[in-house]
């Protein structure tokens, strides 16, 4: 089939602490931190957006894969914060990484799972030999309505995955399957600045049902059990949901720790699972297996089974995600409001 021949992860430099946001709204920061499991979240600089972050991640993926970008035959950028409503992000990224002009490109949107949807599309194109390499990127500068619970989690980041043939892969994608229904747990209408959500409805009927169903289906399809995997990466709108899911599925917590970056950077939406997976790939050893189940509101989950190969050594060609997580600078709520262009007149 197909596999990952290069990956790249990027998180902007700026962070805002949960305490800083809680202070503005008179909330109890400790209660929010223990409830959501988020200590701080990433904030993009004023001159960053989903396109620029996608470019950073894509360039890192290319450094690892060591291929000519002109060989990329398909490029998809998944995001719920594309800079334009009409005009693709994917063309901007393709130009910036010099993959133009002989490729197909498009933007994807499926709330927080547009990144993994892109991986599936690229798998199909590579598997069918329609293209030699495909690039799938999840990138978001997510916005939460001021004072909404989402304001503590909506973060920014990008993860890029270069998909190619098995034999070149640093992690072979053994299989994938999805679970999709029309479940309106979270949405944003055109021209609305901020998303709306169904509160507690986002839990059981949305997140848990979909992530679990896709995961169970893939395990069944491959005739595998939890014990066959070394790492699990689940969508992480907060830290509580994936931890609860792991407990229900009987997954030891240590198997989800490496794939759980939400406590340090918040929920990077389309980039959430791509970043969690990158953090696992930054540590995984040859022969280890990784299990993924993403989630996109609206709703659907894509599950993947990965096996790490000897090519994983190529990760040394570029910066790990921890470089960007550790290289941080805290901002006040006022500066955050400026960077997120929440100030009127900007």
């Amino acid at each position: 089939m197909a596999g990952i021949i290069g990956y790249g992860a990027y998180v902007p430099k700026y962070r805002i602490k949960t305490e800083e946001i809680a202070e503005v709204w008179g909330e109890d920061a400790e209660r929010i931190k223990s409830g959501l499991g988020i200590n701080e979240k990433s904030v993009p600089a004023i001159d960053e957006d989903s396109a620029t972050m996608a470019v950073v991640a894509a360039k890192i993926a290319l450094k690892r894969a060591e291929i000519d970008p002109k060989k990329i035959g398909a490029l998809y950028v998944g995001s719920e914060s594309h800079p334009y409503a009409v005009k693709p992000t994917a063309t901007i990224v393709a130009e910036a990484i010099d993959a133009v002009p002989d490729l197909t490109a498009a933007d994807l949107e499926f709330a927080c799972k547009a990144g993994t949807a892109g991986i599936q599309i690229c798998m199909g194109l590579v598997g069918s030999s329609m293209v030699e390499y495909g690039m799938a990127i999840g990138s978001d500068t997510a916005q939460g309505r001021p004072a909404d619970a989402l304001e503590y989690s909506a973060a920014a980041g990008a993860g890029a995955y270069l998909i190619g043939k098995d034999e070149e892969s640093l992690a072979i994608i053994e299989d994938t399957c999805s679970f999709t229904t029309d479940t309106p747990d979270f949405w944003r209408r055109p021209k609305a600045d901020f998303p709306s959500h169904g509160g507690r409805f986002t839990g059981e009927p949305a997140y848990f049902r979909h992530v679990r169903s896709a995961a169970d289906a893939l395990l069944k399809k491959l005739n595998r059990t939890i014990e066959d995997y070394d790492y699990f990466v689940f969508h992480q709108p907060n830290a509580k949901f994936p931890k609860t899911l792991a407990k229900r599925m009987g997954i030891p917590q240590e198997k989800i720790t490496d794939g759980l970056v939400v406590p340090y950077i918040g929920n990077a939406y389309s980039a959430a699972v791509p970043l969690g997976l990158a953090n696992v790939l930054d540590k995984a050893k040859e022969g280890e297996r990784i299990f993924i189940s993403s989630f996109g509101s609206g709703a659907g989950s894509d599950a993947f089974s990965l096996k790490v190969t000897e090519n994983i050594r190529k990760r040394e060609n570029a910066e790990n995600l921890s470089y960007f997580i550790d290289n941080k600078e805290y901002v006040s709520y006022a500066v955050y409001a400026k960077y997120r262009r929440k100030l009127k007149g900007l």
Partner: peptide
């Protein structure tokens, strides 16, 4: 070199990207 937004026109205008 990094790739960033250089200028944004008003909300209906173009976004210009480039090197920083």
């Amino acid at each position: 070199m990094v790739f960033r937004v250089v200028q944004r026109e008003d909300p209906e205008g173009l976004i210009s990207y480039g090197f920083k």
